[in-house]
């Protein structure tokens, strides 16, 4: 049973529909205590980083406990940004701090018509790995089985930096972390539930990790 964490701002409907289409059982826990029994957690998200304040100490503790106990966690969009230490979008709001780094406003490039927010379909690339690593293979479990250079749907203004946890980066005037993976903590800046077949493959991978 997947626990879909609702903090009021995110539109859960589209994630629910995608999970339903994939045959996954899920619940939207009303109490933080319910996180402990889930086989996997998903923190969806659209909107402002400050919306995550709805997930107060009891939720943070419960999610943290579940992750320490080995439960997989997938953050989507703002849900992924929340995995980091924080975001310049709401400097006073702490992230979960499972991953190092802070999310920053994308700069864009007016001269090249690279607008912010970054809205639309863009390409996932493996971040530059150690020398000798194959150029077009994604490392890790979340992006397994994807074709090379898949397009996925983004809609955001802030983004996480490319760190060693990054398994796919995307370029929009600058490179940012499009997908992250550390152990059983996963995050995607794009919306897999809105990214057609490639997105469904990623969600299917996550469900298999949780199974």
């Amino acid at each position: 049973m997947i626990a879909l964490i609702d903090y009021g701002a995110g539109n859960l409907t589209s994630v629910k529909k995608a999970l339903t289409a994939l045959g996954a059982a899920f619940t939207v826990p009303e109490s933080p205590d319910d996180c402990g029994v889930a086989s996997g957690l998903i923190v969806p998200g659209v909107g402002h980083f400050s919306a995550t304040t709805a997930l107060g100490a009891p939720w943070r503790d419960a999610i943290g406990r579940a992750v320490r106990a080995g439960t997989p966690l997938l953050g989507i969009c703002v849900g992924m940004q929340w995995l980091f230490e924080g975001s310049d979008e709401a400097p006073d709001v702490p992230g979960l701090g499972l991953l190092e780094g802070r999310c920053q406003l994308l700069r864009g490039d007016a001269g090249q018509r690279l607008k912010i927010p970054h809205v639309g379909w863009n390409v996932l690339q493996p971040p530059r790995g150690p020398q000798g690593s194959p150029p077009h293979a994604f490392s890790g479990r979340l992006l397994a089985g994807l074709p090379s250079a898949p397009h996925v749907y983004f809609t955001h203004s802030f983004a996480a930096p490319v760190t060693t946890d990054c398994v796919a980066s995307t370029t929009h005037a600058e490179s940012f972390a499009a997908a992250v993976e550390r152990g059983h903590v996963f995050g995607v800046q794009f919306h897999p539930e809105k990214s057609g077949d490639a997105g469904l493959q990623i969600l299917r991978n996550y469900l298999e990790i949780c199974a």
Binding site: A9, N11, V46, G47, H48, P117, V119, T155
Partner: peptide, 8 residues
């Protein structure tokens, strides 16, 4: 925009 984000 405040409730759902500008992207919505």
């Amino acid at each position: 925009a405040r409730r759902y984000g500008s992207q919505a």
